[in-house]
């Protein structure tokens, strides 16, 4: 089996995907991912020069849009009905200092 990803890579991927992994999970995940990535080899074995990608398996369908018309919205109560934590009509979250993103 080729090592496509190291344990360090797996830790970095997990951090990006925001999934906490235990040390043991990192080990097993590394093995699983490498095995799966090995099995992806067939798609690297074709000459794909000049073959267009099919991002959308929808034939010639294009320009699907809607008119700029207002449709009903949720009430605040419904919008928040599954909120783990809420306050003053808003979703409540702990400190976001240290979050990256584009802001």
């Amino acid at each position: 089996m080729t090592e496509h990803v190291s344990q360090a890579d797996v830790r970095a991927i997990a951090e990006y995907a925001r999934i906490g992994l235990t040390a043991e999970e990192v080990v097993s995940m590394t093995a699983d991912l490498n095995a799966i990535i090995d099995s992806l080899a067939p798609i690297t074995e074709y000459d794909l020069e000049g073959v267009p990608p099919t991002f959308h398996p929808i034939g010639d369908l294009s320009n699907v849009m809607r008119e700029d018309k207002v449709r009903g919205s949720f009430t605040q109560e419904v919008a928040l009905s599954n909120a783990p934590k809420q306050e003053d009509g808003s979703f409540l979250i702990p400190s976001i200092l240290g979050e990256g993103g584009d802001r």
């Binding site: 207002v70 449709r71 919205s73 949720f74 605040q76 003053d88 009509g89």
Partner: peptide, 26 residues
């Protein structure tokens, strides 16, 4: 515009929090 980019929720500045939301924009 009248509505959001990908759903029919009304565009309005200063409304009560989370009152212009739907499955798509939530």
């Amino acid at each position: 515009l009248n509505t959001k980019m990908f759903c029919g929720c009304k565009l309005e500045f200063g409304a009560a929090p989370n009152t212009h939301t739907c499955p798509v924009c939530l």
